[in-house]
Nucleic acid binder design. Sequence first.
DNA 1: TTGAAAGCGCTAACAC
DNA 2: GTGTTAGCGCTTTCAA
Lengths: 348, 348
Amino acid sequence: MRQNKVKPSPRATLKNIALKAKVDPSTVSRVLSQNPNQRVSSKTKNKILEVAKGLDYQPNISARSLRVSKTFSIGIVVPQLDNPVFAEIIKGAERGASEKGYSLVISYLEDGPSKGEPYKKLIQSNRVDGLLVTTLNKNSAILRAAKKSTVPVVVLNRKVPGLINSVYFNSSQAAKIATKYLIAQGHKRIAHLSGQVNSSSGVGRFYGYKEALEHAMIPFNPNLVEVSGYSILGGSQATEKLLANPKAKPTAIFALTLNVAVGAMMALQKNGFSVPKDMSIVAIHDGPIASALHPPLTTVQMPSQKMGYEGAIGLINLIEKNQNKVLVELLPGDLIIRESVKNISKNK
Amino acid sequence: MRQNKVKPSPRATLKNIALKAKVDPSTVSRVLSQNPNQRVSSKTKNKILEVAKGLDYQPNISARSLRVSKTFSIGIVVPQLDNPVFAEIIKGAERGASEKGYSLVISYLEDGPSKGEPYKKLIQSNRVDGLLVTTLNKNSAILRAAKKSTVPVVVLNRKVPGLINSVYFNSSQAAKIATKYLIAQGHKRIAHLSGQVNSSSGVGRFYGYKEALEHAMIPFNPNLVEVSGYSILGGSQATEKLLANPKAKPTAIFALTLNVAVGAMMALQKNGFSVPKDMSIVAIHDGPIASALHPPLTTVQMPSQKMGYEGAIGLINLIEKNQNKVLVELLPGDLIIRESVKNISKNK
DNA sequence: TTGAAAGCGCTAACAC
DNA sequence: GTGTTAGCGCTTTCAA
C-alpha cells in the first residue's frame, strides 16, 4: 500500500544521474570518478555534482571492480585474535584502508604449518587487491604461499627472506633501550624472558639485550635467559624456573612482552617477591594493562597500530603503483617509566 | 623476456572453460554455480567440471555480484578491538562467514554517540549484504543507524528495542550461576562489581545477582555493589572503594567480567588480602588469562565465539531468505571451578 | 568538451 | 538439455 503512494526514488546510478542532469552517463563518470584529466566544463560538472548529491550517490563497487579489475579491498591474515598486538595491528590497518577508500577483509587462521587455504580463496576469487600478512611462525604456510601470490603482499611485524615488502618493528633496539635503562638503575644481574627461536621478533630482542650488556661490559650469563614464549602462562613458568635456579639470582627481569611480564609478576608474587623492592621488571609493548598492574609496569612502547596503518597505506601504494617497494622499519616508542623498577645503584 | 617463452594460460573464466569444453558459457555457469535445478547431462557436466578443475577456476566475485546484486560479504562493526570478547566474536563470525562462502569485512569504530559513518559507507556502496553490529553503548549512533538499514542487521551481545534480529547471551543466568555458587560455598556477604547503567549486559548480570540472593533469602545490600565498568582499572578502583566502605565487608566478589576480576585481584593484593583465604572471587567470561592468574580464577564461561558464529550464520540466512528472523539466546557455558573461591560454610 | 558504443564476467529468461 | 540473448553499473576508447 505504502509503496504505491511514495514515488520510489530511482536508485542512484550513473544512468539516473545522467538522465536528471541531461548529460551522458560517461560524462557523469568522468566527473564522479575524479579522474584528474577530466576536461569537463565547470558548468556541467557543477550540475552533475549537484544531482549526484541530491540522489546521495554511492558508486556500485562491484560494477567498478568488474570494469577496472580491482576490488578496492585488501585482506589481512592474522594467526590469532586474542593477542593485543594483532588487535592493534588490525585497528591501524582498518584506519589506513578506510582512509584510502578501501575496505579491510579479515582472514583469521590458526598459524599451523599446513594451512594457507583461506588466503588462497581470498586472492583467487579476486576478493582482494593485496594482502597484509602477519604470522608468529617463521616457517608458516602463509608465508610460503605469499611468495607465490599474484597480488602484492606486505608482511607485518617481521622481515622474511624472499619477500621484500614489510613493515616491521626494530625490536632489538627496543630491547636495548629496556636493558640499558635497567643497567642505568644499577642492575647487573638482569634476566631475560625470551621468545621462541624461530621467531624473528624474539631473536631481535635477545640480541638487543646482549648488546646492551656488552656495551656496559656486563658478562652475558646464559642462566639468566629463560624461554617464555608469548603467553601469560609462559611468562609465569619461565619465571618459576628462573627463581629456582641458584645460578641465576637476578635483581631485574626484562620481559619480551606485556603478557609475559604479567605472568612473571604473578609468579613473583606467588613466591613472595615484591616488585620493585625484591625484583625490578621492564617489558616491551605498552598497553592499558601496563598501568593497571600492581605496581604499574615500566615499558618500551611498541607501535603496533602504526605497523598496521603503515602496512595498509604501503600496500595500497603498491596496488596503485605509486611505489614498488614497501620497507618500513618502525622505531620503538618511548620508554614509559612507571613503578616497576628500583634504582639500586650505590652512589645514588 | 620470460613472458614471451611461457605460453600464457588463459584466465580461467566461464568463457574460456566453455571454449575448451566446446559448450556454451551459460551451460558452464549452470554447472559451476551449483544451481540445484540444473538439468545438465552428466556427460557434459563431467567434462565441464574436469576442464574447470584443470584451469583452477575461481568465479569472479565482482562479476557475479554485479549480476545478482549481492556482494557475498558481510560487515562487522566493533567498538573496540582490544577487548577479548570482541576478538572472540570476530573469530566466530569469520568462521561462520567463510563456511557459507562469504567474506567478513571489518569496520572498527570508537563507540561514540555521534559516529556511524563507516557503517553508512559500508552498506551504501553495496560493499556488504548484511551487517553484524556490536556495541557497548545502548544509545550508540550505530544502533540508531542500524534501524534504517536497507540490508539485514543482526545485533550481537544484546537485545535492542526496534531491532528484532539479535544473538545475545543470557548474562542474567550466568550471573545467577556465579552467585549461587558463592552462596553454596557459604558466602552471604557477596559484593558485585557491576557494569554501566546503560549497558544491557551489565544490567542483566545485576538482576541475576539479585535474583540469586533473593532465592537464597539473603537481603540485598546496596553497599555491596560498585560500578566498575569493563576495564582492569575500573575493577581495581571499584574494589578499592569496596574495601574502604565499612558497611560493605564482603567475603566474596562477583565480577561481571574477566578484566574486572583481574583489576579486583590486583587491588586485593595491594591491600593485603589473599585470594581465596581472605576473599573469594568469581567472574563471568572464561579465557586463557583466567587459568594464568594467581590463584587461577573460577569463572562462568561466556560463549563469545559462538555468538559471532551464530550471528554470521543467522545473518546469511536472512540475506538468502532462508529465514526471516534471527533471535538466538545463548546460554552461559559451564562453571569452571578453579581456586579462587573458599568454602566457608560452617557445616563443611 | 561531450556523446556513442563496447565490454569487464557472469546469470537468467527465453527459445528450441 | 543446451544455446541465444540481454544486461547488471561502470569506465574508456573513439568520434564528433
